[in-house]
Design a protein around this nucleic acid. Sequence first.
DNA 1: GACAGATGCTGAACCGGATAAGCAACATGC
DNA 2: GCATGTTGCTTATCCGGTTCAGCATCTGTC
Lengths: 338, 338
Amino acid sequence: MKRPTIADIARQAGVSKGAVSYALNGQPGVSASTRARILAIADEIGWRPNSAARALNGARANTVGLALCRPARFLGVEPFFMELISGIEGELSAQSYALMLQVVADHDEEMAVYRRWWGEGRVDGAILVDLHSDDSRVSEMESMGMPVVVFGQPSGSGSLLPVWSDEGTAVRETVEYLAALGHRRIARVAGLPRLLHTALRDEAFTAVCASLGVSEAVTVHTDYTGEQGARATRRLLSSPARPTAVVYDNDIMAVAGLSVAQEMRLDVPGDLSIVAWDDSPLSQVVRPPLTALTRDIPAYGAHGARRLLSLIAGDHVTAYEDQAARLTPRGSTAPPPA
Amino acid sequence: MKRPTIADIARQAGVSKGAVSYALNGQPGVSASTRARILAIADEIGWRPNSAARALNGARANTVGLALCRPARFLGVEPFFMELISGIEGELSAQSYALMLQVVADHDEEMAVYRRWWGEGRVDGAILVDLHSDDSRVSEMESMGMPVVVFGQPSGSGSLLPVWSDEGTAVRETVEYLAALGHRRIARVAGLPRLLHTALRDEAFTAVCASLGVSEAVTVHTDYTGEQGARATRRLLSSPARPTAVVYDNDIMAVAGLSVAQEMRLDVPGDLSIVAWDDSPLSQVVRPPLTALTRDIPAYGAHGARRLLSLIAGDHVTAYEDQAARLTPRGSTAPPPA
DNA sequence: GACAGATGCTGAACCGGATAAGCAACATGC
DNA sequence: GCATGTTGCTTATCCGGTTCAGCATCTGTC
């Protein structure tokens, strides 16, 4: 009851293992009739190539690795990651690549996992996400010599291949829209400050607000949870000159902020405008539906995966800049109260 | 610049490949001093076992497979899956197992993926989720002879190892609570009717309502999206004898339902009580916070993973029934209007 | 001092494929 | 008719580990 091997096929077909190998791989060296006979036998006995034996001959592992450094409780909350993974996956499986996934606790563990996978020949490449400012992982990955695609800004990705979208453009579009509505006191409930994209958004936000005459532009940092989003909102709305618009770095915080506003008897959008960053279905099921920064995350993931596969194939690959997030106005934004 | 192999270590240590293998695997057959010398050299040159070479000798692949049959847009919405995967992952990586993930379009593709993984020796076992009533995958998996854990009711898992929790208990606790509050018209906005656990909940709901004198117990089926949850709620609340309480099969629909109620100027919980099934952070950030059926999903996943690893190890493994979901009352439930 | 048994190592086979080299049988060119 | 090339196959080796049989060498026993 063992798995059939090419030796079994060879015996049945009355030829050598070598001939079987040629036949099964579409290589020249066997006649058409022999090839057909071998293929028929292989099909009949349900032969599959043993991936370990293939890999031993220097072939690819046909697998890419993704070590996610996120605690379980944050993972489930953010649709972003599932959408990204699902996009990556779609592209990978189209090219018969599998995804090896591991959830890790910190960057050290993440690097240990990649080092092991690469050292053991389990993966042909890897995907890096959530770049920090001054991220030590980049140089470590560079020294490993493994093909890597980074979902993050080129400024932080060193010699690794970046796949990113421009945060500045999205920030600008949002602030310009709010300023045009008349808002002059805008707050931002941002994510973790050590994340590179947070820093970039922070910077862009401050700059754009200054250039547009938005007199008060506050940024509050959180850990992306609804809880901290609610607390930040409560504090912002309790200040003497409270903001008339708040931009949130993800949608769960935006929903939490919306609830806080309602709890404080503020009308959204009459008294307060709200913008959510990632546009998941969540933004659309609350009342009012949230104005959000929309992106095609699965497509973003697919682009990154395609780049990685080219990199693994040894092609010359260029960095990829995805479309910036675009503002989708819904019911949560309006001119500020008179 | 090749990877170091045990042959390299053997050469440097002046011993044979066999001795090196014994030393590195903690097997008897080498002296303590030789073992130490070999380990030191291995460490120094950064040797890692080539997983393909190991696998070729009949060793395990140290990987389990999970093919998820869900469209991308549903995947991101439900925190359930990310939490489950994260729990599975935690247990797997604790035992140095990796998770091979693939998102597929339908059951046929799912089976093809498992067949390939198993045939190629890439995985040692698999995880089946989202059982349908009369699910053809079960018998297919049985015939493959691969170790499989099913997250789903024993009634549907055939000879595969089930890991499940009792839906009936959770339904009963919920309905009893609502009935005790005085509700006599209760609706359920359920998930896909072809899913086994939906059918079980449906059945339990009808039975419990009948036994408790809940005169009107309606069940509406949806596809789990907020959109359909909202539509179902709108229809329910527009009926002449509208329900005074609605139980939703997931939290995104519950949030959508809450918004619809507010949109229709109904007070929650004054006019309408709402219960959400899966308790993600989302339930707690909306106003009022949602009464929800709470479970430790990551722990559930971890239990399943542990069972699968035992199964792979050839141990005698018994089915596992997890704790039923427990009702966590919050602000969205109250007695019905007088 | 002869023999049994444990210890520590070597050499070789093996896992399941890929692949280079070798070799008949036959076709082609001049 | 002989060199030359092509086709279709076999044989042997390799990948990087594991594992088993074999063989000195040392230790202990009576």
